[in-house]
Every structure is written in structure tokens, then in C-alpha cells.
């Protein structure tokens, strides 16, 4: 007999448990069963993911224990290891340079907007099968991170923290369909709402149906009092297309976010909003024909010469 009553009873019980959890999770907000379990998962699996990311990512650390060796054979092994390590160092220089450049850009943005933030690295990303666009980063409540804090990188708005564990937190990315942020047009000051749509373009809904919008217009976060969930003045993206909606009560445009979500690595979690609204000072300069001729990455700008490996203290005070 392949299948019997007992198996079916167990199946029914487990399905009932799952169904109960789903129902409870839909009803409850913060402090519900769902968020409690997620907090538990954050504490249990966060450190596991951190450890795994630490093992997987820096390749060169495997050969550290090979330096104290006396016999010849072992010396050869050590030299071979060193050779390999050097080879890896050569290979990873590009990555280090890129990371240093990203950090430099992030610090630049933080300085411009006078945000106080905690730098963090993406360690895990959500699967496509779960439909969510979320990421785990390696900073948590121990670093002062709380739910609903704004997450940025050197290019602009990344998302917001939706749950925080001791050493990790989960970031809802701006392209997630559940993501919502109050926004402001950089020039005209028109107010609207930005919403993610997964791989489809981000949508901006302006409350004024007569608002003048053209492609190339820049959009920043509006920001609410106390800077949660969003601090003011963070660049969101540029208008690429305006949706023709005659007779509608609002105006809809599509945005190209400044942040590239497929190569997300170093981010900053804003732990303290600026005392003064930075208005439009953080926006990237409007591209001019001459600057578009420079291929990205070919010549590092003078500001990006920070030496790799030298990282600032976790809390950066502007």
C-alpha cells in the first residue's frame, strides 16, 4: 500500500496549518503572527546567509592558513597558493575598484543630502518564484536599523526596510509592486505617487491632471515628517514616457530609476534624516552631449581614487 489514511491525515493537518498561517498573515499588520515568524526567520537564517555570503564572495581568504610552513614540499605548496592568491588578487582588483567607486558615490550622496546612514552590502536576493522583489543586506538592529528606514545607494533610491533582525534586514526594492512612495517633480514641485511594477517600468501618478511633464524630468522623494518611511530629496528616476490619459483625474508617467537593480551591491540605510530638506541638490547633473560621449568605467573620475580595502567606520557622519 503506497498511501494510507495516516498520510492523508498528516497532509490535511499540515495544509490546515499553512492555510491558517496565510489567513492570519493577511489579516494582521505589525505584531501579527506573520511578522513575528519573519522576525524569527531573520534572527535564525540571517546569520546563516551572512556566513554563506562571506564564504562565497571574497575568494582569496582560503589560503590564509598556509603561511607558516617549513619543509620544502610545503613551501612549494605555499608558494603555489600565494601565486594563486596573487592571481585572484589581480582578478578581483576590478571588483574592488568598482566597489570603492560605489562607496565613494554613496558617501558623495550622503554628504550632499546630509543623510546619516549605515553602509551595508546585499547578501541575498528573493527568488523569482515568490514574485517579490526584496533583498537581504548585512546590517540590522545592532547597527541602528529599524523598519521603514529609507535605503539608498550612490545613484538614488533603492527601497525601504520592511523587517530588521539583529544582524540583517530585508529591503523592499523600489520595483516591487507593493512599493509605494510619495514623490515630487524636481523642477515644478508637482506632487505624486511612485509605484513599482516588477520588470515593467516604474509608474509615477501625479495628482494634478494639468501638470506639465516631459521625458527627462527628474523625480525625487517628497519625504514625510521624521523621515520615515522616506527621507526627502532622494533621487528616484527620470521620466521616460508620459501616458496619454485624456480626461483622467491624474497624470501618469513612466520612470527609469537611477538605480540599476540587477547589479545592486553596496547600499546605505538612512538612520537619520537631514535637518533641512535638501530639495533638488542630490540629483545627478542633467546630461550634456559632451558627457554622454564618455564610456562608463573607462576613466575613473578624480573623486573615485579611494584605495580598495579602506572602509570607513560603520556609521558615517556627514
Amino acid at each position: 500500500m503506497r498511501d494510507n489514511r495516516r498520510t492523508r491525515v498528516v497532509l490535511a493537518l499540515l495544509l490546515l496549518t499553512a492555510f491558517t498561517l496565510i489567513t492570519l498573515d493577511i489579516r494582521g499588520g505589525t505584531g501579527s503572527v506573520g511578522s513575528g515568524l519573519r522576525g524569527l526567520g531573520q534572527s535564525v537564517f540571517g546569520p546563516v546567509e551572512r556566513a554563506a555570503a562571506a564564504v562565497v564572495r571574497p575568494v582569496g581568504d582560503f589560503f590564509d592558513g598556509l603561511s607558516n610552513i617549513s619543509s620544502n614540499a610545503k613551501k612549494i605548496a605555499a608558494l603555489e597558493a600565494q601565486n594563486q592568491q596573487l592571481q585572484q588578487l589581480v582578478d578581483s582588483t576590478d571588483t574592488d575598484r568598482r566597489r570603492a567607486q560605489e562607496l565613494d558615490q554613496l558617501l558623495h550622496v550622503a554628504g550632499l543630502g546630509r543623510y546619516r546612514m549605515v553602509p551595508a552590502q546585499v547578501i541575498a536576493l528573493s527568488s523569482a518564484q515568490g514574485f517579490a522583489w526584496t533583498a537581504t543586506v548585512d546590517a540590522g538592529t545592532r547597527d541602528g536599523v529599524r523598519s521603514d528606514m529609507t535605503v539608498i545607494n550612490g545613484d538614488g533610491l533603492v527601497g525601504r526596510v520592511i523587517s530588521a533582525g539583529p544582524s540583517t534586514c530585508t529591503v523592499l526594492l523600489m520595483i516591487d509592486p507593493k512599493f509605494d512612495v510619495a514623490a515630487r517633480m524636481a523642477g515644478s514641485g508637482e506632487i505624486g505617487n511612485v509605484q513599482g511594477h516588477g520588470q515593467a517600468p516604474v509608474e509615477l501618478e501625479l495628482f494634478n491632471a494639468q501638470a506639465q511633464v516631459v521625458s527627462g524630468d527628474q523625480v525625487v522623494t517628497l519625504g514625510l515628517s521624521h523621515g520615515r518611511p522616506f527621507v526627502p530629496g532622494v533621487p528616484i528616476g527620470e521620466v521616460t514616457r508620459v501616458k496619454p490619459t485624456p480626461g483622467a483625474l491624474d497624470r501618469t508617467a513612466y520612470l527609469q530609476p537611477y538605480v540599476s537593480f540587477t547589479s545592486l551591491d553596496l547600499v546605505g540605510i538612512v538612520t537619520e534624516p537631514p535637518r533641512k530638506n535638501p530639495r533638488d541638490s542630490v540629483l545627478p547633473p542633467v546630461p550634456t552631449p559632451s558627457s554622454t560621449l564618455v564610456t562608463p568605467g573607462s576613466t575613473p573620475s578624480p573623486g573615485s581614487t579611494a584605495s580598495p580595502g579602506v572602509l570607513p567606520s560603520p556609521t558615517t557622519t556627514p
Partner: peptide, 30 residues
Amino acid sequence: PMPGTVVGFAAGAILDVAPPADGPMGLWAG
């Protein structure tokens, strides 16, 4: 089937709570 059911539930429960999961809690478990 019996161990399969239990292993499947456990796998789904882990997937539901491990960060950065944000779907309906318990759905992967079911």
C-alpha cells in the same frame, strides 16, 4: 508520501520565513 509531505512542509516553512521572503506567510509551506 508521508516523509515527503513532512519534508515538503518543512522546506516551505523555511522558505516562508528566511529573509528576504515577503510573500503570504505559510503559502510555500502548503
